[in-house]
């Protein structure tokens, strides 16, 4: 097996909301073109950790990070970091599908337009590519001018994936992307994630342990802001090293 490249690396990472420490001394290395899942009970800091990778927590007053966080060896925390540039490289799909109240086409084209791509042909090409990658093209190709809010929940979420892919990120963060969807739509999103990891580094937060087991290569188990265990998904789910991990994945709490 070729040595996988480390894409995201955090070390001794702490995160605060005001005085409250919500991430406590977490160190993790996530590999390129892998799916890494973050699991843990509600309120353990999964989403907060995920949102550190594209600095979405900056929007919250009083939020503050400590320690090191790097993408390909380059610091992403410092004040010199161009957050807009970072977010182009690190795309995100949210828990609830949140397409803009615009047409399907404009939703996907939005990220291109705000990044100053104005050539119609390039935009059209990129929109089609992104919708194909998100396995949505065949369903919407005849109604690209329709309002995106008319799509079903599952379609909306795949549209959000397409929208994120259009700006050609290297990393895709997914914050419980299937939690608001029915089982069939969930299965489609999961297939999509497995397909996408050929080209993207994916970090997914999930509540659903079976989902983590099905689609991820590595799993991080977080509890009360601390990293309990991190390793190959197969190891975590078949021979966890910590008792706490075993209790959680067997459903004894959580």
């Amino acid at each position: 097996m070729p040595l996988a490249k480390v894409k995201i690396k955090i070390s001794d990472f702490n995160f605060y909301y005001g005085q409250v420490k919500v991430i406590k001394g977490v160190s993790v290395e996530m590999l390129a073109k892998n799916v890494t899942s973050i699991i843990g009970p509600s309120g353990c800091g999964k989403s907060t950790l995920l949102r550190c990778f594209n600095r979405m927590n900056d929007l919250i007053p009083g939020a503050r990070a400590e320690g090191r966080a790097e993408i390909e060896g380059v610091d992403i925390l410092g004040p010199q970091v161009d957050v807009v540039e970072l977010r182009k490289r690190v795309g995100m799909v949210f828990q609830k599908p949140n397409p803009f109240p615009k047409s399907i086409f404009d939703n996907v084209a939005y990220g291109l337009r705000v990044n100053d791509i104005t050539d119609r042909l390039i935009i059209e090409k990129r929109v089609e590519q992104s919708l194909r990658s998100a396995a949505l093209w065949d369903e919407v190709k005849d109604r690209l001018k329709d309002n995106a809010l008319n799509l079903s929940g599952g379609q909306q979420q795949r549209l959000c994936v397409a929208r994120a892919l259009a700006v050609e990120p290297e990393i895709l963060l997914m914050d419980e992307p299937a939690s608001a969807l029915d089982p069939i739509a969930t299965a489609r999103i999961e297939e999509l994630i497995v397909e996408l990891k050929k080209h993207y580094t994916i970090v997914i937060v999930t509540h659903n342990m079976q989902q983590a087991a099905r689609i991820s290569d590595h799993t991080a188990f977080l509890m009360q802001g601390e990293l309990v265990e991190y390793g190959k998904t197969s190891d975590i789910f078949t021979k966890p090293r910590k008792k706490l991990t075993e209790d959680y994945i067997t459903g004894r709490f959580g």
């Binding site: 995100m92 949210f94 949140n98 939005y110 705000v114 929208r163 700006v167």
Partner: peptide, 10 residues
């Protein structure tokens, strides 16, 4: 809506 937009690098 704002989050989605900012996350796209707007």
């Amino acid at each position: 809506y704002a989050e989605a937009s900012l996350a796209l690098g707007a």
